[in-house]
């Protein structure tokens, strides 16, 4: 049986006027995973994460973190959870270090952690500069420093790269990967940027209109990508090429004077190329377009 770091069961939430917010969400985040929580804007990602952290009053369902019920072990669980929900949550009239120090008092973690997380997020040289003079990216990095201050076992990050420049996004991704691999921190990261998720996560949950449409390991999802690939062959005699391809057990069709193949492996394509050349057909171009996560995501959310 898999040990889930975070698990929700039949999590359902209604907004005022009986508007359905979440419908039976059953998240299962294995310990040590980087779990990408994907969905378009308004899908229910933030609502789910707010319920998990107790920022919204739970109506139906259950939430278990580290194997304990959140309802009965709230304080003990929050000691081991770091979070960043939506926009930066920092005191603008204080400096970065002051923001961290006042939380260090609550978490009772070593004072040296303030400097460590400032260095980790590249904010060490901000000194006496008040947060109100920070850029959005700097505020976001400070929020991440706050989330990591007490060495949490679980990090819940809602759109953490908002406001970061491309270099900042790459740094953040590397930092999260490092935290996950070296400190075995479980990370839940929500995003609508699919490319960002794809490069970082081990597991994926896809939500739309309050319903969890897919949940599982990333490689299972990417397996669907190879299965859905399409190859277009541009050659000197498309009709004869198609006949040759069909005779050898592959499937394909003619489209706009070119041969269109579905889900052929790399080795298969090499074999086809060799047979066409040997038959005296000139092959000008073989172009394979794989289904990327974006396509899979769009298919799931559009259905």
């Amino acid at each position: 049986m898999t040990a889930y770091c975070l698990e929700t069961a039949q999590l359902t939430h209604y907004f005022p006027h009986n508007e359905m917010g979440l419908d039976n969400i059953c998240l299962q985040v294995p310990a040590g995973a980087i779990y990408g929580f994907l969905g378009p804007n308004g899908a229910g990602k933030t609502t789910t994460l707010k319920l998990i952290l107790g920022l919204l009053r739970k109506q139906q369902g259950s939430i278990r973190i580290f194997g304990e019920s959140f309802d009965t072990h709230r304080v003990a669980i929050l000691k081991r959870v770091g979070s960043l929900i939506e926009s930066p949550s920092v005191y603008a009239h204080l400096t970065a270090a002051e923001n961290l120090r006042l939380l260090q008092k609550i978490y009772q973690c070593p004072a040296a952690r303030v400097r460590e997380v400032l260095a980790l997020t590249g904010l060490l040289d901000t000194g006496a500069k008040k947060v109100q003079r920070f850029s959005l990216g700097m505020k976001q990095r400070l929020s991440i420093a706050i989330a990591m201050l007490h060495n949490p076992s679980l990090l819940i990050l809602d759109e953490p790269t908002n406001g970061l420049d491309p270099a900042g996004i790459i740094e953040m991704r590397a930092l999260l990967r490092q935290l996950n691999q070296e400190s075995n921190i479980t990370i839940v990261i929500s995003s609508h940027l699919l490319t960002e998720i794809e490069k970082l996560v081990t597991h994926v949950g896809i939500i739309n209109k309050g319903k969890l449409l897919y949940q599982g390991e990333l490689h299972t999802l990417t397996g669907q990508r190879a299965a859905g690939s399409r190859t277009v062959i541009d050659c000197s005699d498309a009709a004869r090429s198609l006949t040759l391809i069909l005779e050898n057990g592959w499937t394909g069709v003619l489209e706009e004077g070119k041969v269109l193949l579905e889900s052929v492996s790399r080795e298969g394509l090499a074999d086809i190329n060799q047979r066409l050349v040997m038959a005296g057909i000139q092959v000008y171009d073989m172009n394979t377009r794989r289904n990327d996560l974006e396509d899979i995501f769009m298919n799931l959310t559009n259905n």
Partner: peptide, 18 residues
């Protein structure tokens, strides 16, 4: 109003205190 102005209620409520 300090928490509302700085958008920090969510941060405060996810700290381990009742």
């Amino acid at each position: 109003q300090l928490e509302y102005r700085n958008n920090t209620w969510k941060q405060l409520h996810t700290t381990p205190q009742s």
